[in-house]
Design a protein around this nucleic acid. Structure first.
Lengths: 214, 214
DNA sequence: CGTGCATGTTACTTGCGGTAACACCAGTCT
DNA sequence: AGACTGGTGTTACCGCAAGTAACATGCACG
């Protein structure tokens, strides 16, 4: 029948797509974000046009690849976020999960965080806001949802949760990126410091000198 | 004399450099981060090789351009940070200053935040950590210094300050980027929400349901 | 058997970063 | 004066990566 045949075809196409994504993964893991389409095609044992048939353009492949890793990372983060423990412990576990992930695969991480590079084909109007990596956006939204679901923030709580979600994710990301480059302390120390920040230690700290402190 | 002559030459070279940077600025303001060297050269009324003689490569021009804007922005931020007011007020003023800047010139902002794109000429070893835009790094370091100077954080305070500096900057950046894209609320509201987050409202909020809240 | 149709290829175009080689126009040294 | 030097500018090119067109092949269906 028509349906069964299309199903077969679709299955084989999906399998192919997965193989291609895994090949792309390997190349990105090796070459970082500057992996070229040629290199990925070669790694997959095929040539460029096939990649383009499957993913449209580099952005499409990027998106597909990013979705895989993002989904995986988000699952880990959700697990940490859902653990049966106190709030502080969970926040620390979530931070640690993220940092462990970027520590384990820095090349993939760099690829994921790389902006989409803005294609030159027209429509480059005022699409500001598409700048951030999709991973960051998704993590922010995800976290916002969890916050909004579980915390009682009073009126305007939903909007507050969204701001916080994106803000916390950004904090985690920037601190993690800096930490990955300089390694000034252990992961555990970093986690603790960030949690302290979220726990209001900035506001609670005393001034150092006479003047009106920071 | 030799020195005077060299001074003259250097002056004219510096003037030229400034003109080129201003032309580059105009193009970036118009075309965003994908401004090409050709376009910039054309805008300046000259041709590519001159740009390369002045700035080495695209990264050099990027760095010079970024330095201008970064310095300007950092000056504004320092002013907000140094204002004679309470800590919370200053934090809010600083956040607002940053957000106002990115709101006023989103194209420039996108250009500044764009990673260096990793050139293909060798040395692409394990330079993870150079990923973040220099602007973010500088803001993080700058803020860290202010925090460390003014706050009494006890032992390990210096390291804590650095973590916080980068973390807060990342929070500001990510939230600002998201806000710029979606405009879910006014700038003032965003500032207030972020300050609330830094002031520990996350830890203080009550759970919404029966289970162990977030 | 011919007709689709997905899969694969080679060979090309376009555009950008970057460079080599040459041209001009000061002043300087002998 | 005339060769030398150094900065400014040009045209014309290389290499490389994204993306595409056009052609070839294997396999199901009427």
């Amino acid at each position: 029948m028509d349906t069964t045949q299309r199903t077969d075809q679709q299955r084989s196409a999906d399998r192919r797509r997965r193989e291609l994504l895994e090949a792309a993964d390997r190349v990105v893991l090796r070459d970082g974000p500057q992996a070229s389409m040629n290199a990925i095609a070669a790694e997959a044992g095929i040539t460029k046009p096939i990649l383009y048939r499957h993913f449209g353009d580099k952005g499409g492949l990027y998106a597909a690849l990013a979705k895989r890793h993002t989904d995986a990372l988000l699952d880990s983060l959700r697990a940490a976020l859902d653990a049966p423990a106190e709030r502080r412990e969970r926040v620390e576990a979530t931070l640690d999960t993220y940092l462990a992930a970027i520590e384990a695969r820095p090349q993939v991480y760099r690829f994921l965080m790389h902006p989409a590079e803005g294609g030159q084909p027209g429509d480059q109007g005022f699409d500001v806001g598409k700048h951030s990596a999709p991973l960051l956006r998704r993590m922010g939204e995800e976290l916002a949802q969890v916050i909004e679901e579980r915390l009682d923030l009073g009126p305007g709580g939903q909007q507050l949760a969204r701001v916080w979600g994106h803000g916390i994710v950004g904090m985690m990301h920037a601190a993690g990126d800096w930490w990955l480059g300089e390694r000034p302390c252990s992961r555990a120390e970093l986690v603790r410091s960030l949690a302290d920040l979220l726990w209001g230690r900035l506001a609670a700290a005393g001034d150092k000198m006479g003047g009106p402190g920071f």
